[in-house]
Structure formats: structure tokens, C-alpha cells
């Protein structure tokens, strides 16, 4: 890909000395391609995610960000390219193995995706019921209680999703994502549809989670404030490839016309 402008990453390496090039990446994507009919969405995307790192992916609406992270848990099958998560090659796993890996990868969906017909308690029970061996020796009620306390909503346990505000829904969804204690978390627009104050609370929550549980995260967002606060590294997804990479400061100072145009467009919104 000759159009790829990889901006030197030394600055971010300096900020995170523990993240050496020798460490094995938790997620490794190489040359991923995906088309829906004639709509070629991903055209050879590369990405590595290292332990303890928050990588933010930004890109225009419809550029394929959600498709990309869905490829990581095989909600979408890639056409071509390598997808490795926690050392496993995702496209070649059988169902049993895939379910095990999926438990290690938390996924926060764009619109929270709480199950409408279930209470908050049942929503959190749902992932547990399939992975009871994994949580061996731990009391289910205790795990649910703990997960809700982590997001500050222990009192909402018997409510239905329809009774929750948008921000509360997002927190419950986060609790449901965390309950299996994943090693990597994929956030699909964690702050979309929230007011700035609630969005900021969610961002702080994500940072706290990363500190307390030592997880790595891939975060998709439209929200540049969110990207600035949360990211150790940013990737711009454009034209189906990782068009540019670097820290927020590096990218915002970039001379590349497309990167400049992107920042300008986002700020004007």
C-alpha cells in the first residue's frame, strides 16, 4: 500500500516504556479484506494491539470501523488476510474454541445492545450461564453484584432496560462486558448518543477499568475529545486501510492532506 503514511511512533513508545517491540501483540491483523457484494469495505488493513494499550480507531461514518472489530470475534467473516487474537487464528477456529476466545474478548456494542426482554440481572447472567466452568468457584450473585458496583449501578439490578437512561444502559452494557473478566475489550463508539457529561463519565470509567484490570482495548470513536483522553495511539481508517497512525498530538499536527482534512471535518461538526 503505497498510500499508507505511517507516522513515526517513537513518541508513544517513549511514553510507554513497558510496551517494547519484543512483546507479543494481543491482536494482530494483517492485510484484512472484506467486501459486501460490490462494496469493498476493507482493502488490506493492518493493526497490532499490545498489552496495556488503548488504541483508538477513527474514521468517517461507513468507513468500516464496526466491520473491522466484528472480524476480530468472527461476527463478520473476513475474505482475505490474517486475524490473530490472543495467539489464535480466528478464521480457522471451530465453534468450541471460538466461544472460549470470545469469552476473553469483551465487546461493547454501539447502542449498548442490552436484551430488552430481560432484567439487568438476567442480562448479566446471560454470559455467565455459558461459561460456568470458567468462573469456577465464584458465586454468580456475587459476580453480578461486583460487576454492577464496578460501574456504580448496584441499585439497578432488578430494572428492565427500558427503565434505564442512555448513560445507565451503557454502564450496564459495560458491566455485562466485564463480567467474564476479558483480557481485551473492544469498544464500538462507547460515547455515541450520550451528552458530553455522561460521555465523560463513561470515558473515565473505561480508563479506570483499564487501570484496575490491566486490559488492553481497541476503541472506535467519532468523538475527538474521547480519542485525545483515552488513546495511547490512534489509527485513522480511511479507504479501507490503516491510513495513518500515531499519537493524538502527532496526528493532529500531521501535514498529510487527508489527515488534515479529517481533523478539520471532525472539528467543524
Amino acid at each position: 500500500m503505497s498510500t499508507k503514511t505511517v507516522i513515526p511512533d517513537s513518541h508513544s513508545l517513549f511514553q510507554h516504556p513497558e510496551q517494547t517491540l519484543a512483546a507479543d501483540p494481543l491482536i494482530r491483523i494483517r492485510g484484512v479484506k472484506k467486501a459486501f457484494g460490490s462494496n469493498q469495505v476493507l482493502r488490506g488493513f493492518d493493526l497490532d494491539l499490545y498489552p496495556n494499550e488503548n488504541v483508538v480507531i477513527v474514521g468517517k461514518s461507513g468507513s468500516g470501523k464496526s466491520v473491522l472489530i466484528k472480524c476480530l470475534v468472527r461476527l463478520v467473516e473476513v475474505d482475505e488476510g490474517q486475524v490473530e487474537v490472543l495467539g489464535y487464528t480466528i478464521p480457522s477456529l471451530d465453534q468450541e474454541e471460538l466461544d472460549q476466545i470470545r469469552a476473553d474478548v469483551g465487546f461493547l456494542f454501539q447502542g449498548s445492545a442490552l436484551y430488552d426482554s430481560m432484567t439487568v440481572r438476567e442480562n448479566l447472567q446471560f454470559p455467565l450461564r455459558r461459561h460456568s466452568q470458567r468462573m469456577r468457584g465464584q458465586d454468580e450473585d456475587h459476580l453480578i453484584q461486583e460487576a454492577l458496583e464496578n460501574v456504580g449501578l448496584a441499585h439497578a439490578i432488578d430494572l428492565m432496560p427500558a427503565e434505564l437512561s442512555g448513560g445507565m444502559k451503557r454502564r450496564i452494557a459495560l458491566a455485562r462486558t466485564l463480567i467474564l473478566q476479558p483480557k481485551v475489550i473492544l469498544y464500538d463508539e462507547p460515547t455515541s448518543g450520550l451528552d458530553p457529561i455522561t460521555a465523560n463519565e463513561i470515558i473515565q470509567l473505561i480508563l479506570t477499568i483499564q487501570r484496575n484490570f490491566q486490559t488492553a482495548a481497541l476503541i472506535i470513536t467519532h468523538d475527538m475529545d474521547c480519542a485525545r483522553v483515552i488513546s495511547n495511539r490512534m489509527v485513522i481508517l480511511q479507504d479501507g486501510i490503516n491510513y495513518a497512525e500515531g499519537t493524538y498530538t502527532e496526528l493532529s499536527a500531521s501535514k498529510d492532506p487527508k489527515v488534515k482534512a479529517f481533523f478539520k471535518e471532525v472539528q467543524n461538526r
Binding site: V73, L75, R102, V105, F107, R130, H131
Partner: peptide, 20 residues
């Protein structure tokens, strides 16, 4: 309507990644 709204709000995807 019920399954349709579960589909578009990604509840079906969420079930799938929960091992169900």
C-alpha cells in the same frame, strides 16, 4: 418486530459473542 429490533440493535450479535 421483536427479532427485527434485536437484530438492528445488535442484541443478536451480543448473544453470539456470549457463547449462545
Amino acid at each position: 418486530a421483536e427479532l427485527g429490533s434485536m437484530k438492528v440493535t445488535e442484541q443478536i450479535d451480543a448473544m453470539e459473542v456470549s457463547g449462545t
